[in-house]
Design a protein around this nucleic acid. Structure first.
Lengths: 211, 211
DNA sequence: GTTTGTGAAACCTTTCACAGCA
DNA sequence: TGCTGTGAAAGGTTTCACAAAC
């Protein structure tokens, strides 16, 4: 899993890339053409050679937005919040947690994995001062909507929501949900459907490999 | 957010349902027709009335697979593992954690949120005995592929992977990934794209509301 | 020779619109 | 009248296939 560019190869064909991703080369070319166009760049692939790894990487990072740092605020230092703070890998990915708040006064002032927990009423100021765009919402379900409202009011641009519910937000604010139960349901559905097609396959005498 | 069925309403139209989900009624009808067909049931919606909430719920649960319990094994009692054990909400959703294992001998025998941690070599036996179909993989990235291999060998059917990497698994095994950094990247891309279209909108004099 | 970028074709999903039913 | 189920239209995505570029 060492970066390809460090393995001495500094160019990649769409077919190679597609093999790694399990998709046909044509789709890679279409997608990459879109990336280049989105970026407004003219750094395109070279016929007969392929794509320059470094340039490609930079283009993709531009389009995804990971070329810059996105300061984040963590709201809630319960079990999930503490696990996230302990991980410490987000800063490397460009998402440093620069502020931590909790509604529980008993938590305020405590240090969790090196981060001092601030009170809710400091949030607005923290967001402005640290130019925070993203909030990680790690509070219990019962507190989630109220917390989301406060975040919207404080001028956050996006929320990563760990509460097992849909939160309503103001127009113009993006939300991404992480819900372990939903992921488990996806998984169980995948397994069920595989079971069913397997049984069908058996019944009508294995038509043609896997579906 | 009280269940609709407890609010005295025991029937729902595709339009109502679509409004709640933010999609047109026609799509709800198409999807529900698929659910009914998938289930092989003839419990269909009633013209002029709508869908029976209870029957609909049951059909959807059948298709997703949540009509039955899926015993799960947790592998790894690090920060994420402990947070998952502390949550205790998965059992209610039909995904009870019935076994917990960790490679660290110092962890074995300890009780975490009421679950005794078993050693790795007990895993195979636990999976058979408790009829475990799903594993939650919550180990560090460096240990993830080896752990996945062991799970595949032990006859697991699906893996919910929290390690920040793609794991390779045997044919016929389903994987769902939860990667917070990837979710943060999704969020930042959403925000970036909104910014861009916003700026475009401004430049050419706000064509027509939101894009 | 190899590989890109891209029209055209094939495929899939969403929306429309309406006959038919309660 | 109100609503479903579905054929047809519209829209979008993926794959094919090949001229042009290296």
């Amino acid at each position: 899993m060492r970066p390809i560019i460090e393995q001495g190869q500094n160019t990649l064909s769409s077919r190679e890339l597609g093999e790694k991703l399990g998709i046909p080369g044509a789709q890679v070319r279409k997608d990459l053409a879109w990336v280049v166009k989105s970026r407004g760049s003219d750094e395109t692939g070279q016929a007969g050679v392929g794509y320059n790894c470094a340039a490609l990487c930079e283009s993709v990072r531009r389009v995804i937005g990971t070329h810059r740092r996105w300061s984040t605020l963590l709201m809630g230092v319960g079990n999930i919040g503490r696990a996230l703070l302990a991980y410490e890998g987000f800063a490397q990915d460009g998402f440093p947690i620069v502020a931590v708040v909790d509604a529980d006064p008993r938590m305020v002032g405590k240090k969790v994995s090196g981060h001092v927990v601030s009170p809710l009423n400091a949030m607005q100021r923290l967001i402005c001062r640290h130019d925070i765009t993203i909030a990680i919402l790690a509070v219990p379900r019962s507190a989630a909507q109220a917390a989301a409202n406060q975040l919207c009011g404080a001028g956050i641009r996006g929320i990563l929501n760990f509460a097992p519910m849909r939160i309503a937000v103001d127009e113009g604010i993006s939300v991404t949900n992480i819900d372990v139960s939903v992921s488990l349901e996806q998984l169980s559905m995948d397994i069920s459907r595989r079971d069913q097609s397997g049984r069908r396959e058996q019944k009508r005498g294995s038509d043609r490999g896997a579906a």
